[in-house]
Design a protein around this nucleic acid. Sequence first.
RNA 1: GGCCCCUUAGUCAAGUGGGUAAAGACGCCGGCCUCUCAAGCCGGAAGCGCGGGUUCAAAUCCCGCAGGGGUCGCCA
Length: 485
Amino acid sequence: MSDTKTVRTRFAPSPTGYMHVGNLRTALYAYLLARKNGGQFLLRIEDTDRERYVEGAVDIIYNTLKQAGLQWDEGPDIGGPCGPYIQSERMGMFKGYAERLVESGHAYYCFCDKERLEEMKRVQQASGIPPMYDGHCRNLTKEEIAEKLAAGIPYVIRQKCPRTGTVSFHDEVFGDITVDASVLDDQVLIKTDGMPTYNFANVVDDHTMGITHVVRGSEYLSSTPKYNLLYEAFGWEKPVYIHCSPVMKSATEKLSKRNGDASFEDLIAQGYLPEAVVNYIALLGWSPKGEEEIFSLAELVEEFDIAGISKSGAIFDPLKLKAINGAWIRRLSPETFAALAEPYIRKTCRKEDLDIPAVAALLQPRTELLQDIPEQVDFIDALPDYDIALYTHKKMKTNAETALAALQAALPVLEALPDWTADAIHEALFGLIAAQGVKNGWMLWPIRVAVSGKQFTPGGGIELCAILGKEESLSRIRTGIEKLK
RNA sequence: GGCCCCUUAGUCAAGUGGGUAAAGACGCCGGCCUCUCAAGCCGGAAGCGCGGGUUCAAAUCCCGCAGGGGUCGCCA
């Protein structure tokens, strides 16, 4: 690659609440694009709206990004050459930039008050005209401006957009887009209070921070022409745009911030692994070249290509997230999984001497969500009260009668067992099965039912006996015999 | 409503006019394995929004329609 310029991307969230997966996906793509090209990924907090500011939201942004593994190279907490990285701390610089635009004729002072603006909008709507600024102050003379300024009339600075012709821009995802200049509103750049609007601050910040590739939601598609006009007015090089369609909750609703399980931290709390969430959202609206779908963050960096980003919105599918989470859980080393699973196992198993690694080994291929674990092992501490109908299984050819015979045959053999290990139990029971000439299930199914009292269990009778221990297993088998008599 | 954008199975999607019987994944259904449930393996059903055109050839190009999304703030 002979790219002369380093790729610099940024994630620029506003601290207005928690991060939902759509935000995180945008951050992820920006991160991947930077890493893929050996560039930098920046974090900039856009906190200029003090009314929507939510206490603690910045920490949520930090924590989410960290948990997801999206390490930023420059940001509020670690600094960098283009700081400050908190927009509210950059306020001083914007007005000067806006005035440069006024000088060059790309912006102008506007003294219209709220009343006039509202009246204008009302009239426009009443006559079916799309509401936009009518250009009332577009051509004030220098004298008029000086006069109003001197009189202390509040003003804003508006961008002076062309009135005729078309404006085009290129987006890496959507291709070339052309709009009629007449639809471009003379948007406010500097507010009455002297502060910049988001649209203005964003452009100035992106430029001054050297951002080369802008990754953001497709809701900015329609304001991009105005952004480009700004870049052109300043004589700045325009960034490459990568607009991403939204993550949807259904075909018609965008994923909402109100939807609790759409937030990254909620997903983690539900027992999803950060790796799995990252893996899944990468796939939501982007597709890799090959057929593999399970990727670590490092692998995603290798695989990522903006050409794979799709144009249409993608519906968030919890089922697929779960499947990917399951795949990640199965990939974990037994030790790692046991450590993760232990607190969940402990929710229903209080027995001190429980062999956690052994239980975890049974659980690992059977767990898609850590939260599913407690229910799977709820029979370990105490035998549930169960119906003897469980002993009847058509395929095993068992019923209450045969089960009683099986348990009675197995009991003395197990009682006589010196070593209580899965292997020893297996050997003993299969010896008995062979000696009696019965089917495995005829003997084993009743044992599994007797020791668990459940229809479904992680692992078979032999494995469960090993986990429960000799005394408890035998006791449960005796209980079974009593119930069946 | 104006403007912009999107439209391949239930979902995520590959596909970029001449070797497609239209990949793959999740889910679903069936089978194998098996002492249950999983895991694993094998197989199956399921799709190019609609209508025109261009072409020897269209999911791929053009036009129209429909549906959906976005935007139209001194919010970000």
